[in-house]
């Protein structure tokens, strides 16, 4: 378990960011990578029934999250936004509790974290982001929402309805698509007619841009611009971050059945963490001591979170009844009593 080394001898990035910000990106992306590896290991050890790796998408996630106004904006994730959660300082033990099957949606506080519960319904949360943004607009508040979704979700009707809705009302929302090339086993050319999700924005009368999703600086700049636009009242936009899911769809998946290992190898050479490290080295923004320190801190944090989630106590069974309604109905109370009597036998 070590930080990836740059394979690309010609590191490139578009746009600029301060050296301090670049180093922050690096630390967060590396922590996400190492925590992701710990999570995969926990699945192998039987601690997690299943896990969905974000390996390869760290730049798209950290770059986009870092552009958010942490006091006002709100993120609506899918089930693969672990690095977004990390970048937003979500309680990561609470985040991974969902993968440990302790509670659907996680055990963190979404309102305090400004990060909605993890959601596995493909495309489903995208209109939620629009509704949140409409709320901001109706109340005259300055916040924006960001909707995370993937290339597979772009085929879902809810994404169309959400985009049209948002554009009709000029809702302050950013539709952030991580096109990681594979919707489980189906590649882009069988998923995305026309070949571009960003191009669809034109049909809704909003800007749509494609960015190199493995270039954290480019992603950050694009999202920042879209948020500024939304906050100014100019409405929504679409960003398509082209990236790659380096791992399987989930720990239950076998990519060997549907994709060429050579393709994975080519994308590994464009690893976003290695690329950022190359930029930092090339421009003299970080030295060996920084990278060693970053790796040590990231590793420690990953292990702390791993140990935390591994030992987190499962919620009591009575909690199954507690949150169905604001107050349990009489029928639910009766079921709870019956359940307890059975459980205590």
């Amino acid at each position: 378990m070590s930080a990836p080394r740059p394979a690309d001898p010609h590191p490139e990035t578009t746009g600029t960011a301060s050296p301090a910000l670049l180093r922050d990106f690096y630390r967060t992306m590396l922590t996400a990578r190492l925590l992701d590896e710990e999570a995969v290991a926990l699945q192998r050890q039987g601690v997690f029934p299943a896990y969905v790796s974000l390996r390869g998408q760290e730049a798209a996630q950290v770059g986009s999250a870092a552009a958010l106004d942490r006091d006002h904006d709100f993120a609506f994730p899918t089930y693969r936004e672990m690095a977004v959660a990390l970048a937003l300082d979500v309680d990561m033990v609470g985040y991974l509790a969902s993968h440990r099957a302790l509670w659907h949606g996680g055990l963190y506080d979404p309102m305090r974290s400004r990060f909605a519960p993890i959601n596995a319904v493909v495309g489903g949360p995208v209109p939620h982001a629009v509704g949140w943004a409409l709320g901001e607009r109706l109340r005259g508040d300055p916040g924006c929402a960001i909707a995370y979704f993937g290339d597979g979700a772009s085929s879902e009707g809810d994404v169309h309805e959400a985009m049209n809705f948002a554009a009709v009302f000029a809702a302050p929302v950013v539709f952030f698509c991580q096109n990681n090339q594979w919707a489980l086993s189906v590649p882009n050319d069988r998923q995305v007619a026309g070949g571009s999700i960003a191009a669809r924005a034109a049909g809704y009368g909003m800007p749509g841009v494609t960015v190199d999703g493995n270039d954290v600086v480019a992603v950050h700049a694009a999202v920042r611009e879209a948020l500024e636009r939304a906050r100014s009242g100019a409405g929504p936009s679409v960003i398509e971050a082209r990236t790659y899911r380096l791992g399987p769809h989930s720990t239950s998946d076998d990519p060997g059945r549907y994709r060429d290992p050579d393709e994975e190898r080519r994308w590994r050479e464009r690893d976003p963490i290695a690329r950022l490290r190359a930029v930092l080295e090339r421009d003299g923004h970080a030295d060996t001591a920084f990278f060693e320190e970053a790796e040590r801190e990231a590793g420690e944090q990953a292990i702390r979170i791993r140990d935390g989630v591994s030992s987190a106590p499962p919620p009591g069974g009575e909690e199954m009844f507690t949150h169905v309604y604001r107050e349990p109905t009489e029928a639910l109370r009766a079921q709870q009593r019956a359940w307890r009597e059975e459980a205590e036998l």
Partner: peptide, 17 residues
């Protein structure tokens, strides 16, 4: 767009309306 109507209502209600 009925799904959009209910889906946006989810976000709006989360927001506090």
């Amino acid at each position: 767009a009925e799904s959009g109507i209910v889906g946006t209502a989810v976000g709006m209600a989360s927001y506090g309306l």
